[in-house]
C-alpha cells in the first residue's frame, strides 16, 4: 500500500526532529519519506508474532558501580566548545518570560 504523508504529519515530524524546513524541503521530505516507508512496509510480509523485540544482541545487564566520586571537576573542559558562555555556564536565549 502506498504511504501518504500529510502536511500535518511532516509538520509534526519537523517539530519532533527540531528541524525547520522550507516549503521545498518539506515537499522533498514528504516524497522521500513516502518512498522509504513503502519500502519498509516489506516488513509487514513477515510474521513476527512470537518474536520478542530485541534491543540488544547480547543478554547484558545494567552495570552498577560504587557511588564514589571519580575524576575531577570538568566544568572548564565542558565549556571549552560552548558557542556562548557566561559565568561558568552555557549561555542561551531567555527561556522564561
Amino acid at each position: 500500500m502506498a504511504n501518504k504523508i500529510s502536511d500535518e504529519t511532516i509538520e509534526y515530524v519537523g517539530i519532533l526532529a527540531k528541524l525547520e524546513l522550507s516549503g521545498e524541503e518539506k515537499e522533498n521530505a514528504k516524497a522521500d519519506m513516502e518512498k522509504m516507508l513503502d519500502y519498509i512496509d516489506i516488513l509487514n510480509e513477515l510474521d513476527t508474532d512470537g518474536a520478542e523485540p530485541m534491543s540488544h544482541v547480547f543478554p547484558v545487564h545494567n552495570v552498577f558501580r560504587e557511588d564514589a566520586v571519580s575524576g575531577v571537576d570538568g566544568s572548564a573542559d565542558t565549556l571549552v566548545n560552548a558557542p556562548l558562555k557566561k559565568d561558568n555556564s552555557f549561555k542561551v536565549p531567555k527561556t522564561i518570560g
Binding site: A51, P53, M54
Partner: peptide
C-alpha cells in the same frame, strides 16, 4: 508498527 516491528525482525535475523 515500525520500531517494534523492526526490533522483532532483528531478533529473527539473529536467530
Amino acid at each position: 508498527a515500525y520500531y517494534l516491528k523492526a526490533l522483532r525482525t532483528k531478533a529473527m535475523i539473529k536467530q
